[in-house]
């Protein structure tokens, strides 16, 4: 269990917990020929650690946001932008949003799936689904 007071910033205090998406230890990332652009992103695990830090600092909503981010980290840009567009007002029917929720579950993003379902329920109430 992380201690926000002791372990943050992770990059300086707990680099041992961090690695790149390709599995390189954080401490070994250096500007050389062998590093790849794919190394230079946060992993879902790192984002979950940051969510833990936020929760430990009594910021539950920020933590939830970072959990959703962790789930989205390995989802391609285009898919993310499609979901964003689907969530905009009057873009999607209830069924379409439900399909995105199911897809997000399949992609290992249950929090985002629940989030989309909650949106769909309110959109129906407020008349901002596609007709």
């Amino acid at each position: 269990m992380l201690d926000a007071n002791r372990d943050y910033p992770l990059g300086t205090r707990r680099p041992d917990l961090l690695s790149s998406p390709t599995g390189r230890p954080f401490q070994e990332l250096a500007l050389g020929d062998d590093v790849d652009r794919a190394d230079l992103r946060a992993t879902p695990e790192t984002l979950r650690l940051q969510a833990e830090v936020a929760r430990g600092a009594s910021r539950p909503q920020l933590a939830d946001n970072l959990v959703r981010a962790a789930e989205l980290a390995s989802i391609p840009d285009d898919t993310i932008l499609e979901i964003y567009t689907a969530l905009r007002p009057r873009r999607s029917t209830a069924a379409e949003l439900e399909a995105w929720a199911t897809r997000l579950e399949e992609l290992g993003a249950p929090s985002n799936a629940a989030f989309v379902r909650e949106a769909a329920a309110v959109y129906a109430e407020r008349g901002i689904l596609a007709v």
């Binding site: 926000a4 007071n5 943050y8 910033p9 992770l10 990059g11 300086t12 680099p15 961090l18 790149s20 954080f26 990332l29 190394d39 230079l40 992103r41 946060a42 992993t43 790192t46 984002l47 940051q50 830090v53 936020a54 600092a57 910021r59 920020l62 970072l66 981010a69």
Partner: peptide
Amino acid sequence: MQKQRVAADYLQTSAIVGPDGVVVSAVN
């Protein structure tokens, strides 16, 4: 700065990065 993206410390509240590369935020 690319490595900062790997550690993601600057996603915490009020984060900025010092010239020494250490993230300073409302957490620390």
